[in-house]
Amino acid sequence: MRNRSQGFTLVELMVTIAVAAILLTIGVPSLVSMYEGFRTNSNVEKIHNVMAFARNQAISYGATVNVCPFASVSTCGTSADWSGGIRVYINSAGTDKELRAIDSFHSNDKVKGPSGTITFSPEGLSSGGTLIYCPGGKTAESQSVDITTSGKISYGNDGNSC
């Protein structure tokens, strides 16, 4: 009587590895685009929420609240590039008090907005503007947040140019 050994043969193992490699080659690109879509939705929601927060704080404090792109640790940028993050602050007694901040976004993504600062008045009115989030710099997949001068904050059109 012959004992049969347990396990896989080399041929079976190589076929299994080849099939797994083919499946990964097909599946990974779609997973990357799915991850990019989730990241975009999450970051656009963050931008929307921080703008709503700024407007609510302006009304609550009865003071002007500013939203600007990060330039460095505690200063605002003056360019239209908001990729470095977003800073929300109130100026009281001549000093800036930071209320909230969003750190920089993913290094491949671009965030374009108005040059300088978006302000919210104590009445909830705004200087207005549109922030466009472009994942990987792709215009076709971009999403935006619109801020009207009346202070309304809403999700804007998709596919705006970066």
Rank of each mutant, 00 (worst) to 15 (best):
N3M: 01
R4H: 14
Q6L: 13
Q6E: 12
T9G: 11
L10Y: 01
V11F: 13
L13C: 09
T16H: 08
T16D: 11
I17K: 00
I22Q: 06
L23W: 00
P29C: 06
L31F: 13
L31N: 07
V32L: 14
S33E: 12
M34R: 09
Y35R: 09
Y35W: 10
E36C: 03
G37H: 11
F38Y: 15
R39K: 14
E45T: 08
E45M: 04
K46W: 07
K46A: 13
K46F: 11
I47V: 09
I47P: 06
A52Y: 01
F53K: 06
T64F: 09
N66S: 13
V73K: 12
C76S: 12
G77S: 14
T78L: 11
S79V: 06
S83M: 10
S83Q: 11
G84Q: 10
G85K: 11
Y89P: 04
I90Y: 10
I90N: 09
I90C: 05
S92H: 07
K97G: 03
E98R: 12
R100Q: 14
R100A: 14
R100L: 15
S104P: 07
H106K: 00
S107N: 14
N108Y: 03
D109Q: 03
K112N: 05
K112T: 09
G113V: 00
T117Y: 03
I118S: 00
S121N: 04
S121A: 10
P122D: 04
E123A: 14
G124R: 03
S127D: 00
L131I: 15
I132M: 08
I132F: 07
I132Q: 03
G137R: 00
S142V: 11
Q143G: 11
T148Q: 06
T148R: 03
T148C: 01
T149V: 09
T149K: 08
G151A: 07
S154E: 08
D158L: 07
G159E: 03
